[in-house]
């Protein structure tokens, strides 16, 4: 064997050592980004397809099914009898609201034979009203103190009943459940930090969804008010009042659950 041959063998050994075939050439970091993007994409597709399916189901299911689901869920919701604690001075307004409630309920087929729509006064000075999943509606003390106009009160009541008629409460629940299921699949119920991260991401989307629901509830309330009174001027005035009270810069409304009041005023003005 010549020396030349020996050298070339050594060169081949060095080539083998340096060009290590047992470790793949792709870097970990690149792999990490590809995998994370893949997983997030997969979850988004899963979430939206499940959400669309559940939306179709909720919109098309029979009232009996809805009642069954509500019975299951409202077990945990105990309606508080706050009226006993409330002042007697709201009695007149509550009477009026209860009367209007029956009229609205009769006029709309979507509200037939479901909840009793109990109305209670909620001890808070904020200007607000809300509906809980079993159909019980709460008006805050601040709302009843500020708003004396009957048309505006009817508008608020109809807005909350509109949420119920559109089955928004069920949609919200289904979203939460789907998000929970997707997350638990993703993390196999292990990583809490990843879960909270994805939940924060999901917030934006559910907010805009909720604003869409508010818009539909506004439209529902508007049609009720137009039917009962023939105009919606007081409702617009009420919205303008909220607009003045809130006085928040426009861009913040992207983070809010309700559309900007000015947007809602436009909506009412265009649907006379």
């Amino acid at each position: 064997m010549s020396k030349n041959n020996q050298d070339s063998l050594e060169a081949r050994y060095i080539a083998m050592i340096e060009n290590n075939v047992n470790v793949s050439k792709s870097s970990d970091l690149k792999e990490f980004f590809i995998l994370v993007a893949g997983i997030i994409g997969f979850c988004i597709i899963l979430f939206f397809s499940a959400d669309i399916l559940s939306g179709v189901f909720i919109n098309n299911m029979s009232d009996k099914t809805q009642a069954k689901i509500e019975n299951l869920m409202s077990l945990s919701v105990i309606p508080m009898d706050l009226n006993s604690m409330a002042d007697k001075k709201y009695a007149e307004q509550l009477d009026f609201l209860n009367k209007q409630k029956l009229i609205i309920k009769k006029s709309n087929p979507k509200l037939q034979g479901k909840s009793r729509f109990d109305i209670f006064v909620y001890p808070s000075d904020e200007l607000n009203a809300f509906v809980i999943p079993n159909g019980t509606i709460y008006f805050t003390r601040g709302m009843l103190n500020t708003i004396k106009n009957k048309q505006a009160l009817t508008f608020v009541l109809a807005h909350e009943m509109g949420h119920y008629a559109n089955r928004d409460h069920l949609k919200g629940y289904s979203r939460q459940i789907i998000a929970g299921v997707v997350l638990s699949i993703l993390t196999s119920g292990q990583s809490d930090s990843l879960t909270s991260f994805v939940q924060n991401l999901g917030m934006f989307n559910s907010l805009s969804y909720s604003r869409n629901q508010e818009r539909n509830a506004d439209l529902f309330a508007n049609s009720v008010v137009l039917k009962l009174y023939g105009n919606n001027e007081s409702a617009i005035k009420f919205m303008q009042l909220i607009d003045n009270k809130q006085n928040i810069p426009q861009f913040i409304h992207y983070f809010s659950t309700h559309p900007a009041p000015s947007e809602r005023i436009d909506l009412l003005k265009h649907n006379k």
Partner: peptide, 8 residues
């Protein structure tokens, strides 16, 4: 790939 280099 991330574990291949460890084993190697």
């Amino acid at each position: 790939t991330s574990f291949e280099s460890v084993m190697d």
